[in-house]
C-alpha cells in the first residue's frame, strides 16, 4: 500500500456491552442440517434488505466507494491543484469553496474517501479474523488458556484505545499497514470476547458431542462444526467493527497519525484547517468533517440493521 494513512485503535467505547453485541446469541438451529441453516440465512438477508436504514446506509457508502475508486477522474478539479482562488467561500464554480492554498474543497473531499475506505475495512476484517480464532480457542478449549487469555482481554478492554494506537503509530511509523495492524490488534480482544461467549453456548450441544464421539479433531470441531453456527454474532461484530474502524482511523488521522499534508485524507483536512474556522473560513473544515460524519453514520445504520435482524432470528 503506497499511501500511508491514518491511525488505528480506539473506538470510543468498544467495551460497552450494548444490549446487542454483549448478549449470547441463541444457537441458530443447532442440530439442523446445512440446508436449513442456509435457508435461515437467506431469510435474514431478505429481512435486512428491506430495512430503510440499511438501504440508505448502503447508498451513502456506495457514493463514497465510487469517489474512492474513481478518484480524480470524476472530481471537478484535481484534488492537489492549487491554482484556484484562495479561501473562496462556496460558489457555483467551487461548490464547497477553496482552501488556503487555492485547492477545491469538493474535489479534495471526494478524493479523500480513498484513504479511510482502504484502511478501515481491512483493519476491521483483520481484527475479526484474529478475534474469531482467539475467541474460538478460549471458548472451546477453555482451561488455563481461557483463564489467562480472559484476564489479558479484560485488561486490553480497559486500555485507552486511541492513546495506545497513537503511541504505537508514533513509534512504529504511520504507514497504512501499521495503522491496519494496530487497529486490528486493538479490536481482536473485543471480538474474541463476543465469540468466546457464543462458543460457550454451543460447546455442550448435541452436535458437538456427537462430533467428539465420531472422533473428530479439535480443529475440525471448532472451525467446521461450531464456526458455521456462530456466524450470526460474527457478522454483527464485523459490521459494528467497520463503523468503529472508520471512527478510529479518522480520529487518528486528525490527531496527526495519518498521511502527511498534501494528502486529501478527511481527518488530515480537518486537522489542517480547523484553526482557520475562527477567521470565518468554515467550509474547509466543515465539509471534510461532514464527510466523516456521513460515512460513520452510514456504517452504523448498516450495522444496526444487520444486528437487529440477526438478533431477532
Amino acid at each position: 500500500m503506497s499511501l500511508q494513512s491514518s491511525g488505528g485503535g480506539g473506538s470510543r467505547m468498544p467495551a460497552v456491552p450494548t444490549p446487542s453485541t454483549g448478549a449470547v446469541m441463541p444457537p441458530v438451529a443447532p442440530t439442523s442440517g446445512v440446508s436449513e441453516r442456509k435457508q435461515a440465512r437467506r431469510e435474514n438477508w431478505r429481512l435486512i434488505r428491506k430495512r430503510p436504514a440499511f438501504i440508505v446506509g448502503c447508498l451513502i457508502v456506495l457514493v463514497w466507494v465510487a469517489c474512492a475508486i474513481l478518484g480524480n477522474r470524476i472530481t471537478p478539479h484535481h484534488p492537489l491543484d492549487y491554482r484556484g482562488p484562495i479561501n473562496q467561500s462556496p460558489s457555483w464554480d467551487y461548490l464547497f469553496g477553496t482552501d488556503k492554498t487555492g485547492r477545491d474543497v469538493l474535489s479534495r473531499v471526494m478524493a479523500g474517501a480513498r484513504d479511510v475506505l482502504k484502511i478501515a475495512p481491512l483493519a476491521a476484517i483483520a481484527g475479526v479474523v484474529f478475534g474469531v480464532i482467539l475467541g474460538m480457542f478460549m471458548g472451546y478449549l477453555g482451561g488455563v488458556l481461557d483463564l489467562v487469555a480472559s484476564r489479558i482481554v479484560e485488561s486490553f478492554l480497559a486500555l485507552p484505545t486511541v492513546l495506545i494506537a497513537l503511541l504505537a503509530i508514533t513509534t512504529l511509523g504511520n504507514s497504512s499497514w501499521v495503522v491496519i495492524g494496530v487497529v486490528a490488534t486493538l479490536f481482536t480482544p473485543i471480538v474474541a470476547r463476543t465469540v468466546r461467549s457464543a462458543v460457550l453456548a454451543e460447546r455442550d450441544l448435541d452436535y458437538v458431542t456427537s462430533a467428539k464421539l465420531r472422533g473428530e479433531g479439535k480443529m475440525f470441531i471448532m472451525f467446521r462444526e461450531i464456526l458455521p453456527n456462530v456466524t450470526g454474532p460474527i457478522i454483527v461484530e464485523l459490521t459494528v467493527r467497520i463503523g468503529y474502524a472508520v471512527f478510529t482511523v479518522a480520529t487518528l488521522s486528525f490527531l496527526g497519525a495519518g498521511p502527511p499534508p498534501p494528502s486529501p485524507d478527511w481527518g488530515a483536512q480537518v486537522s489542517d484547517n480547523y484553526n482557520s474556522i475562527v477567521a470565518g473560513f468554515w467550509w474547509t473544515t466543515f465539509f471534510p468533517a461532514a464527510a466523516i460524519a456521513s460515512l460513520v453514520i452510514a456504517a452504523n445504520m448498516i450495522a444496526d440493521s444487520v444486528q437487529s435482524v440477526v438478533e431477532a432470528s
Binding site: 486528525f254 474556522i277 466523516i292 460513520v296 456504517a299
Partner: peptide, 18 residues
C-alpha cells in the same frame, strides 16, 4: 442518539465550532 454517538468527537467539535 445512534447518529450523534457514532460521529467522532473531533468532528462534532469542528461542526459545532463552525
Amino acid at each position: 442518539g445512534l447518529a450523534s454517538s457514532s460521529i467522532p468527537e473531533f468532528v462534532t467539535a469542528a461542526l459545532l465550532l463552525s
